[in-house]
Design a protein around this nucleic acid. Structure first.
Lengths: 376, 376
DNA sequence: TATTTTCTTGAATCTCAAT
DNA sequence: TATTGAGATTCAAGAAAAT
């Protein structure tokens, strides 16, 4: 089982490597300052997002959303958050090898401040990478777009940094022999992977999926590298690092998280050396909005669509809806209503005139998908 | 053809609307200051990304600068970029209506600074939206992930801003009846849409696809709204705004871009008004009091209403209230109380017997609304 | 036991008009 | 400006319950 060290343990002999594969209990900055200079290859940091939530949020079925309202996510102001960010990034900077890289994940609440601070501190951004969530929480009030992604920033310690690890060929091979893009599709952490306590409640409110960490470590580290996570939480970084044959160091304040992480990591077995190239993201057929056909010029607003036998017709509107008389709605809704049905697949029901013949609008969707080939 | 105004033209009579559907030639901030307060519904801004252009960041070639100067330059340069960002965002803030929203697009080179500045200036971020490029430029050196997206930030002028436009129902209907996500897939602008000069060279280095602007304007504006683009470039915003029946104002310094944009916008035809109306949901429907159902004889006092599964029941009273035992109140209050909830939509919760089946009283409201159609 | 239906839940800055 | 009340609002997965 990974050992848990106090700050005193680490400070007593920082040059030794006793802190490898262990969890340091304590404040993030203080613990970082106890580690030796230039000793870490990769940092993955999932800092507090500084969410600013109003009151309670209820779902349409009147159940309550279990929000992230933990004390550790509360900051008095942007200035306070910026000062915190600066402090832990500076401490990270010192322990990072000159060829090391850092990943930071966040949402629009904090990621812009983190990114600007990284630049201010002379880190050099290599990419921003988007984690597209396959199954994000919906927007319940219908006043915004569904918040369906998070942003990760990948940066070197210095602008001129040479020799950082990027396993380009492995990434390409894992991505059907095309370059790995900056947008990744993964499900959120749920099901058996999600750590639960004895009462069945989630141990940590923001546990990250192992698949995400696996891609990060496969892309930007080598076996035997040292991976540091200054906000260790439930220990996803440690679990994946151990499985992939990397050393880890975690820093965490909360004893409950430390206990869960220790047990979790202890149960992980390292993969054999030949097994490491198989982790890729889930592929899915891209969802194509009807809107996309209009936006990409394949079908013009005002076009008249009919069914295969020209019994019903409807007009395409610029907002991506159809209008059949007073009936306005999605291609599926309007298709159902003109026929008096409850449901209808608008993609196969509605046709457009291509010369003298009618073709289903699904044919246009195929064209769009062809243009997206290889994108996921 | 859209008119081109000098700063003097606009300053002479800023309160008049002569600046609508025109391009103002001049510096971004100076031109913004010539426009009246609170006159714009939506701003789309595509500020300079490339910190090397505009003389703000002297990093043409990392290898030519030594480390010390480099660091100093970089700090100074980020400060200059931040000051520039602050200036144009503040000027935008003044011309934006209280219910207006702003979109800013950028890449990792600048978007973190823009986002942090937006927050510092008290804008309120609604979403960050990812433009996933269907056909991004490959990464040539194989030292990073393929940079396959750009980031857009959508924000209101103030944290508590109410009444901003978001055409939720149209977006959802256009997206196969599931809510629109924060990651959008579009091809980059090339082919026939890409403006070329007489030599076949592209007119503008970062011309945005019209499809992207179409979705932005369909989502966050109404026909007749005023759309401002302070970095007008080749005029994509103006072309799409005109096509979709929105007014536009563009600000641009370079005469070559202005000439190209004028010609381009002049060739655009506005879509017919029938194509432009935005699909709205229940929120936009006229309010109908439950009382009205009783007054119009659709439901009689004394009628027993139940929920869908007949677990709860209540009696309709002549004054338009419901009674469930001692509980008397609106359809919503009583619906909430019988279930032990804080809130409830009585229209969809309560059902009446229509023969052997139960129907929601919302069906009766629909009848009333149909009868009101055309009266208003 | 196998299949279908219902329930639960996830980093969320989540209403608006009338008074 | 703060309060009140009408009434609008969710997608995908996995687990649990029902058939």
């Amino acid at each position: 089982m990974p050992s848990v060290l106090s700050l005193a343990d680490v400070s007593r002999s920082p040059r030794k490597s006793g802190w490898l594969d262990s969890i340091i209990k304590g404040d993030c900055v203080a613990a970082l300052e106890a580690l030796p200079d230039q000793s870490v290859d990769v940092i993955f940091a999932d800092p507090p997002y500084n969410l600013q939530l109003g009151g309670m949020l209820t779902r349409p079925d009147q159940s309550q959303v279990d929000a992230v309202d933990d004390e550790w996510d509360q900051f008095a102001s942007f200035e306070a958050y910026d000062a915190f960010t600066r402090a832990w990034l500076l401490a990270c900077r010192r322990v990072l090898k000159p060829s090391g890289t850092i990943w930071v994940i966040g949402s629009y609440h904090n990621i812009f401040r983190v990114g600007a601070t990284l630049q201010d501190l002379n880190f050099w951004i290599l990419n921003d990478v988007i984690w597209r969530k396959a199954n994000p929480m919906p927007n319940f009030k219908g006043r915004r777009f569904q918040n369906a992604h998070e942003t990760m920033i990948w940066a070197t310690r210095d602008p001129k940094a040479k020799g950082y690890t990027f396993n380009y060929d492995a990434m390409k091979a894992a991505n059907d022999d095309v370059q790995m893009r900056s947008d990744w599709l993964f499900p959120i952490c749920n099901g058996g992977e999600r750590l639960k306590d004895a009462d069945g409640k989630k141990v940590h409110p923001t546990q990250k999926p192992e698949a995400l960490l696996a891609r990060i470590l496969m892309a930007s580290s080598k076996p035997g590298d040292v991976v540091l996570d200054p906000f260790f939480g439930s220990g996803t970084t440690g679990a994946v690092a151990k499985r992939l044959g990397r050393h880890f160091v975690g820093i965490e304040r909360e004893q409950a998280y430390i206990d869960a992480a220790r047990e979790r990591i202890d149960a992980v077995e390292q993969l054999g050396s030949g097994m490491l190239s198989v982790m890729t993201g889930k592929k899915a057929e891209p969802r194509v909005a009807f809107n996309t056909l209009i936006e990409s010029g394949l079908i013009a607003p005002g076009t008249v669509l009919t069914d295969e036998r020209r019994r019903y017709s409807a007009i395409v509107r610029a907002d991506g809806t159809l209008a059949a008389g007073n009936d306005v709605g999605s291609i599926h809704r309007v298709g159902a209503r003109v026929q008096g049905y409850d449901a209808c697949n608008g993609w196969t029901f509605w046709h457009y005139a291509d010369g003298a013949t009618l073709k289903p609008i699904d044919a246009l969707r195929t064209i769009v998908r062809a243009g997206m080939a290889g994108i996921e």
